[in-house]
Simulated assay, not measured.
Amino acid sequence: MRFLAALFLCFLILACNEEVVIKPEAKLRLDYPQASYSTVQLDCPYSFKINTNATLNTAAGCNVDVEYPSMRATVYLTYQSVKNNNIDSLLYDAQKLTYDHTIKANSILEQPRVDSINNVYGMFYMIDGNAATQSQFYVTDSVNHFITGSVYFKAKPNFDSIYPAVVYLREDIRRIMETIKWK
Rank of each mutant, 00 (worst) to 15 (best):
A35K: 03
E19P: 08
L90K: 00
T78S: 05
E25D: 11
L9H: 01
T52P: 10
Q134S: 11
R72V: 11
Y92K: 13
N106E: 08
Y168P: 06
P69L: 01
D65I: 14
D65Y: 09
K23E: 12
L30C: 03
D93K: 10
N106L: 08
R174D: 03
L30S: 00
F137L: 00
C44S: 09
R72W: 15
I87L: 05
S36K: 12
I117L: 01
F146N: 04
W182T: 02
D88E: 15
Y92I: 14
N53I: 03
V143N: 13
A54P: 09
D93N: 12
Y121G: 01
Y125Q: 06
C10V: 15
I22H: 14
R113C: 13
Y168M: 01
V20E: 11
N84L: 08
R2Q: 15
W182R: 03
C16F: 08
S81F: 10
S89Q: 12
K154P: 02
T98R: 06
V75R: 03
L97G: 09
N84Q: 06
D160E: 09
L90N: 08
Y76K: 12
A54Y: 07
S38A: 04
E18H: 15
N85H: 14
G129L: 06
F8A: 15
S161E: 09
Q111P: 11
K27L: 13
M1E: 12
Q34A: 15
A60Q: 14
E110Q: 03
D141V: 07
R170A: 06
Y138T: 02
A165L: 07
C16I: 11
L14V: 10
D160V: 05
A59E: 14
P33E: 04
N86D: 00
M123C: 09
E25W: 14
G61R: 06
L7F: 11
N144H: 09
N144T: 10
F137V: 02
Y92V: 11
N84I: 03
L9W: 03
V75M: 01
N118M: 12
T78C: 02
R29M: 11
N84V: 06
R170M: 10
N158Q: 10
H145E: 06
P157R: 04
T102M: 13
K154Q: 10
F8K: 15
F137D: 01
S36H: 10
Y138Q: 03
I127H: 04
S135W: 12
A59C: 13
R174Y: 07
M71S: 09
D160H: 05
F11V: 12
A105V: 05
L12S: 15
K183T: 08
S142F: 03
Y32H: 08
R29H: 13
Y68I: 04
D160R: 09
T58H: 09
K27T: 14
M71C: 08
F48H: 00
N51Y: 10
S47H: 04
Y76I: 11
D88N: 14
N84P: 02
